[in-house]
């Protein structure tokens, strides 16, 4: 019995992927990422340098960086970033606060699901952009209509994934908890919510991604601050460097927020990653 772990075999580690491709270490993958971004920047720089592209339409990376420095120094860029970030977070948190309980209720009750699902299925195909006019009429052009539109964009992925999580609950886990003496409430807390949780995290990540996409649309309408406003305003002034700066900022911000949620996912749902950690 002792030394059992030695006799129970683990899969052999191959140097190639299942299809024969090269298998990289995490370090090598990182190096490739850095090289890829550096290469793209170099290509961009080179194209503008040799004058192949009209610099008015595509300014060089240096010019975008210059405008990054100047707008950071005069405090306008941080103001835009902060305004956008706040809107995304407000809309996202609002979406979580509504979609999670509704998703849980739909997952737990066939009656609730029967009532809510047809409505959701009809509203879901309406893209957030199409919500903008009615949101403006209802809530004016103030802060709330933007937060509302972002909330709308983030809402469905969270809801749909939460519901999916409840369908994935393995009946054997419920039976196991029952034979260990769990009450219905304890089964809900220790089995059902636990099973559905990874799906909620996935929903949150997708929701956050959509919140970002919708942000720019919401800010394009009527606003005086934010990254979407920055881009739109720069267009009127024909400042392509500022347009690109705004785009890059949105890309980086979205990337960082997604990383943050991925990290939260990895920490909270440790048991899922356990196998990868070991291997």
């Amino acid at each position: 019995m002792s030394g059992s772990s030695a006799t129970e075999a683990r899969p052999r580690r191959h140097r190639t992927t299942a299809l024969g491709g090269i298998l990289l270490t995490p370090r090598q993958r990182q190096a490739l990422s850095v090289a890829s971004i550096a290469g793209a920047l170099f290509l961009w720089w080179g194209l503008t340098r040799i004058g192949l592209i009209n610099p008015v339409l595509l300014p060089s990376p240096g010019e975008v960086f210059d405008s990054f420095v100047s707008s950071s120094l005069d405090g306008s860029l941080p103001r835009h970033v902060w305004a956008s970030l706040l809107r995304v977070i407000e809309g996202f948190v609002l979406a979580l606060a509504i979609a999670l309980p509704v998703g849980v209720a739909m997952g737990m009750s066939q009656v609730v699901r029967g009532i809510v699902e047809p409505l959701i299925e009809l509203i879901r195909p309406i893209p957030p952009i199409a919500i903008i006019p009615i949101a403006m009429l209802w809530f004016g052009i103030g802060e709330f209509s933007k937060v509302f539109i972002i909330m709308y964009g983030a809402f469905f992925p969270i809801l749909v994934n939460t519901m999916a999580g409840f369908r994935e609950v393995d009946p054997i886990h419920i039976r196991a908890a029952q034979t260990l003496g769990a009450t219905r409430l304890q089964i809900f807390r220790d089995v059902i919510l636990r099973s559905a949780f990874p799906y909620m995290v996935v929903g949150a990540r997708l929701g956050m991604g959509l919140a970002f996409i919708v942000l720019v649309a919401a800010e394009l309408i009527a606003s005086s601050v934010g990254l979407g406003y920055l881009i739109n305003d720069a267009r009127y002034r024909f400042r392509t460097d500022e347009i690109l700066l705004g785009m890059v900022c949105i890309g980086i911000l979205g990337f960082l927020l997604n990383k943050l949620l991925l990290e939260a996912d990895r920490r909270i749902v440790r048991w899922r990653a356990a196998r990868e950690r070991q291997g």
Binding site: D170, I172, H173, A176, G181
Partner: peptide
């Protein structure tokens, strides 16, 4: 009358809670 802790169960597919150690 329903499952209870007086009757412990061991399942073929283990039924372990994967989120617990």
């Amino acid at each position: 009358d329903g499952p209870g802790p007086d009757r412990g169960m061991v399942f073929q597919e283990y039924g372990l809670f994967p989120w617990f150690t």
